[in-house]
Design a protein around this nucleic acid. Structure first.
Lengths: 123, 123
DNA sequence: TGACGTATGTTACAAGTGTAACGTATGTGT
DNA sequence: ACACATACGTTACACTTGTAACATACGTCA
């Protein structure tokens, strides 16, 4: 599974909170923050769909985007990669240390813990 | 300060252990691991020097490379970036949780802690 | 039905990164 | 002085990412 880039992650965060959303709606949320033109947002969304980071549906005649993987799933991959390559921590990670990041709820942290301590070569 | 890419980080890790080293010596260490040709290693080294990740000197008529920033300095930047963008943890970070990563000694962790809890917009 | 706004498709271009070959210079041994 | 190995400089090419414009299609209102 391809890891999202920083910009892609920004978009995913919006969609994890509220999905599906149209390109227009996503632009309203991330455009000002990233200082992107609508065009740029759309290009990034297309690429994310190509890479299967997002699923594409049509609602009321408009294309809407939904994340393919859950927040916990995606972030566990990103975190695993980071700890492996940067800190060379291959084994179980001390995820409890991050539980005050507002990024995830307690349940999501629990889910993430599961993924992180999985057999580790299954996605 | 530009963050090192994953490959660049591999080279830096070697040089933090033992520097300065020539391109040939670096190749002997990272070539097999990264499965790089000597050419590739040299290109990457040049780019790292351009970006001021490495300093270039001449010893006994050969070019040798030395990291510009300490391991603690560099990793603090990488970690800060990661926690900011991925987990949105802006404040002080629970670095104690990582102290069993063999990447840094106790002294280096102490140095890293300092950087991480610095005013945060000074490099 | 024609104009206008919005949605969608296509194309572009520069920087960064992975990956490497080609050509040239220079030191060392014979 | 020449050949050979090694070092060094230059160039190449594809892929990803950031960033965006241009063009076309389609629905709605007048």
């Amino acid at each position: 599974m391809t890891q999202p880039s920083k910009s892609e992650l920004t978009i995913l965060k919006v969609l994890w909170t509220e999905a599906p959303l149209s390109a227009r709606e996503i632009q309203e949320k991330v455009g000002p923050q990233l200082k992107w033109s609508f065009s740029t947002t759309r290009t990034t969304l297309s690429r994310m769909a190509e890479k299967s980071l997002l699923r594409l549906d049509t609602k009321h005649g408009v294309r809407v985007y939904t994340p393919v993987e859950s927040k916990a799933r995606t972030l566990s991959g990103v975190m695993r990669e980071f700890f492996d390559t940067v800190l060379e921590m291959k084994g179980p990670l001390p995820t409890a240390a991050f539980h005050d990041s507002k990024m995830l709820s307690e349940e999501e942290w629990a889910e993430l813990d599961l993924y992180l301590n999985e057999s580790h070569d299954d996605d």
